[in-house]
């Protein structure tokens, strides 16, 4: 028996009103207490319930690679992102902290889906820009500072095979600051960043992962295990 009653199969979360969704969530939690509330998690994201269920298969895999507890620990996140268990990395740390919305040291399934949803092609640009600002605001001061940007660039270069000299990194960071720090105070605030991202949409293009648009089609192996039948 599926987790969601047959009468609801084929409906996207958008087609369920809130009351129905809450009732459905209650039924769901009664039937299988160990499964996440897929309907509730899908609401407020561009993902359908089936796609959230597909993401759960992926989540289960990642969250059991080191510690088998269905939670993503930083080491598991590092391995999944970079395929290695290298030393601590600033870039991974910051990305992990953004996914770990509760700040309890692990990424839960709901956090995983909500964070990934920012990279969905259907997510609003404002949401992508806000997430990116938090990523660059390494020490969470409310500003992007020059040294933070440089540290981030160095950290990602350290994990990549790109060979960029220290002088070139300085030039890249200087040039970026010249472009975005319109107030000229040596730091980029939210207002400057928003304006810069609006005028230069290419800085947000990597905040979209095209295959998230229809994850059950791109990753059909997930559908094999799906318990929710969702028609067009």
């Amino acid at each position: 028996m599926g987790c969601i009653p047959t009468k609801h199969a084929g409906q996207s979360p958008d087609s369920l009103d809130r009351r129905e969704a809450v009732a459905l969530a209650a039924e769901t939690s009664c039937e299988k207490v160990n499964l996440p509330d897929f309907v509730n998690i899908a609401s407020g994201t561009p993902f359908t319930v089936s796609e959230v269920e597909a993401l759960h298969d992926l989540f289960r895999k990642i969250s059991n690679t080191v510690v088998k507890d269905n939670l993503i620990h930083k080491e598991e996140f590092h391995v999944a992102l970079f395929r290695n268990k290298k030393k601590q990395n600033l870039f991974v740390d910051r990305l992990f902290d953004l996914f770990d919305q509760k700040g309890n040291g692990v990424i839960e399934f709901g956090e995983f889906v909500r964070s990934l949803s920012v990279f969905h092609p259907g997510a609003p640009e404002e949401q992508k820009a806000a997430f990116a600002f938090k990523l660059y605001d390494l020490r969470q001061t409310g500003f992007i500072e020059r040294n933070e940007l440089k540290e981030m660039v160095c950290a990602l270069l350290d994990e990549s095979e790109l060979d960029i000299t220290s002088d070139a990194v300085e030039m890249i960071v200087d040039r970026t600051f010249d472009q975005a720090d319109t107030k000229g105070d040596g730091r980029i605030d939210q207002e400057e960043w928003t304006a810069f991202a609006k005028d230069n949409p290419y800085v947000l293009r990597n905040m979209t992962l095209p295959y998230l648009k229809d994850i059950t089609m791109v990753f059909p192996s997930f559908v094999v295990h799906s318990e929710i039948s969702e028609a067009d």
Binding site: L149, I172, R205, F219
Partner: peptide
């Protein structure tokens, strides 16, 4: 020419590429 790169683009490119790795886990 690396100088043509923007630091924001470089960082977000890395975030996008590496998050893509999640799906090959």
């Amino acid at each position: 020419e690396p100088v043509a790169l923007n630091a924001f683009e470089l960082i977000s490119m890395s975030a996008g590429l590496n998050l893509g790795n999640l799906f090959d886990s």
